[in-house]
Computed example of a mutant assay.
Amino acid sequence: MKTILWATLTANGNYAQSSPDNPPKQEALDDFFAEAKAAGNFIVGRRTFEGMRGSGGPGPFADIDIVVVSNSAPEIPDVKVVRSPEEALIYLKEKGHQTALISGGADIHNSFLGQGLVDEVIFNVAPVLEGKGLNLLIDQENYRYQPVQLLDCRPLGSGIVQLRYAICFQQ
């Protein structure tokens, strides 16, 4: 199964934090909806999922398998709750998905990256500098480099540039 990590970064490389003062740009949201629809699923952390839920209705995700990775979330109607990245991927593979979209929460992103479970990354670089932010990490203990290969680079609008990379696995 191909795994794609989708994230928005600030222009200075932080993991972009949405807030009422810094809401996500519509172009990035539209791109996420298109990626989720193409994959037929997305994997998200509990806190990010709760933030996305809004009024609680399915919205644009009515026909999409949503997997929440959490050690503490109770059962959620119409959503699969799992305890680990591996369990999320097993579930989606058993449902017949060819691609898994990892979509939200720095902890979830870092967990998948740290375990070498990501094949591609999509970074939407937002036109903002952030003074304090979270980082995407592949290794929290050592200084390790992971080569990537640029697959695509394109503007989304509103100053957002999308970078798509394949992760080059080292032998």
Rank of each mutant, 00 (worst) to 15 (best):
G114Q: 13
Y145Q: 15
S70W: 13
G13M: 07
V82I: 07
N142M: 02
A7G: 06
A7I: 04
V44M: 04
L134Q: 07
E75M: 06
A106G: 08
I102Y: 13
L150K: 12
G157D: 03
P24K: 06
S158E: 15
G45F: 12
L9H: 07
S103E: 15
N41K: 02
G54P: 01
L5G: 08
L150W: 06
A38R: 12
G131V: 04
A88Y: 02
E75Q: 15
V118I: 15
D21M: 07
V118F: 11
M1E: 00
E50P: 02
E86H: 05
I108C: 01
P58L: 12
S158Q: 15
M52V: 09
I138L: 02
N14G: 06
L150D: 09
P24E: 09
A166W: 01
G114S: 15
Y91L: 06
I108L: 13
D31S: 13
S18V: 12
F123H: 12
E94G: 02
A36K: 09
N142S: 15
Q171N: 12
F49D: 01
P127R: 06
E141V: 13
K37L: 13
G116I: 06
V68S: 03
L137V: 08
I4N: 12
P60C: 13
F49V: 07
Q171C: 00
P147A: 09
S18C: 03
L29N: 09
N12L: 04
F32G: 00
L134R: 12
G157H: 03
Q98N: 14
